[in-house]
Design a protein around this nucleic acid. Structure first.
Length: 281
DNA sequence: CTTTGGGCCTGGACGC
DNA sequence: TGCGTCCAGGCCCAAA
C-alpha cells in the first residue's frame, strides 16, 4: 500500500491525464470510506476544471478552480486511468469512485479495505485544513535536513523507527521505508529517538531522501506510457534491503548467517520492523 | 505535552 | 475443500 513513493507515482501518472481537463461526472458508489464523503462532493467537482495534480505527504491534492480534492489511498487504494478510447469495465466490487473527464478519460478508485479518504476544501483554505495543518516537512524538500530532524527528535523517548513514522517529524515515511532508511543509515530501529543527533541525524536524512527517491524512480519506470497506474509498489520491492527478509543476509553481508540468523524481525507499535543487528546500532 | 493501544476493513497466505 | 488464524504498505482517537 501506498507510501509516499507510490502516491507520488500515482500523481505523476495522473498529472498529464487530468491537468487542464474538466470533471463531467463523478460516480460515488458508497457513502463513505474511512470518513463520509462530503455530501455535495459530486456536485462541487462536476464542471470544475483541474489546475494541478499535487501531493502533500501521502495525500493526493487535485486542485480545481474552486476546491481541492484531498485524496488518500489508505492501505489498499489503487487508481486506474483509462485514456480516451479505452473501454471502462463495469464497476467491480471495490471500485468506489469514478471520475469522468471531458477529455474522455476516466479515473477509477478501488479500495478494498476502505482506509482511503476523500474530502473537499476551498483551495485557498487548504493550509488550514485539519488533515493538512499539522503535517511536518516533506522528506524530499530542502526544509528536511539533519539539524531539522535532530531538533524534531530531541527529547523523544520513543524509538527512532516510530518517530520517523510520525508525520509531524517527517511526513511520508511509512513502515517499509522506515526500515529501509534505518538500515541504510546504520541506525538501530530500537534506538531512542532523542539520541539521533548530529552526524546520525544527518545520515538518516540522507538515507530517507535516497531511499524514497530511488523508490519513486523505480515506480515511475512501471508506467512509462502513463496510460495506467495503480497504488502498488512498482518494481522497488525487488530492491528492499531488509523489509520482509527475515533470516536472509542483508546486502553486502559478510557474516556467517548460520550463526547470526541474518535479518531480524521485531514488532514496534504493532508493526513489523526488519533490521540487521550487526550493521545497525 | 508525549506515548501507547485499539479500532477501522477486506483479502490473501498459511496450517490443520 | 473448508475453516480458523494471522498478517498487511495508514491513520485517528481515547486513555494513560
Amino acid at each position: 500500500m501506498p507510501e509516499l513513493p507510490e502516491v507520488e507515482t500515482v500523481r505523476r501518472g495522473l498529472a498529464p491525464v487530468i491537468e487542464g481537463a474538466t470533471f463531467t461526472r463523478v460516480h460515488i458508489r458508497r457513502p463513505d470510506l474511512r470518513k463520509p464523503f462530503p455530501h455535495d462532493m459530486a456536485k462541487r467537482l462536476e464542471g470544475a476544471r483541474i489546475i494541478k495534480a499535487g501531493r502533500r505527504s501521502k495525500y493526493l491534492l487535485v486542485e480545481t478552480e474552486l476546491d481541492t480534492l484531498i485524496w488518500h489511498l489508505g492501505m489498499s487504494g489503487q487508481v486506474r486511468i483509462y485514456v480516451p478510447g479505452d473501454a471502462v469495465p463495469p464497476p467491480a466490487k471495490h471500485d468506489h469512485v469514478q471520475f469522468d473527464l471531458d477529455s474522455g478519460a476516466h479515473i477509477v478508485f478501488t479500495d478494498p479495505r476502505r482506509f482511503g479518504l476523500m474530502d473537499l476544501c476551498p483551495t485557498e483554505e487548504l493550509a488550514d485544513h485539519p488533515l493538512m495543518k499539522s503535517i511536518g516537512p516533506e522528506p524530499l524538500g530542502n526544509a528536511f535536513s539533519g539539524p531539522i530532524l535532530a531538533a524534531a527528535l530531541k527529547g523523544k523517548s520513543q524509538s527512532v523507527k516510530q518517530a520517523i513514522m510520525d508525520a509531524k517529524v517527517v511526513c511520508g515515511v511509512g513502515n517499509i521505508y522506515a526500515s529501509e532508511s534505518l538500515f541504510r543509515a546504520g541506525i538501530s530501529p530500537k534506538r531512542k529517538a532523542g539520541t539521533v543527533q548530529g552526524v546520525r541525524a544527518e545520515k538518516l536524512v540522507v538515507a530517507i531522501k535516497e531511499v524514497l527517491s530511488e523508490a519513486i524512480q523505480a515506480g515511475g519506470s512501471t508506467l512509462k506510457d502513463h496510460r495506467t497506474t495503480d497504488g502498488g509498489l512498482g518494481y522497488f520491492q525487488h530492491n528492499f534491503a531488509v523489509y520482509d527478509r527475515a533470516g536472509e543476509a542483508c546486502p553486502g553481508c559478510d557474516c556467517d548467517i548460520s550463526k547470526t540468523k541474518g535479518i531480524q524481525r521485531l514488532e514496534q507499535g504493532g508493526r513489523s520492523t526488519y533490521y540487521c543487528p550487526r550493521k545497525q546500532r
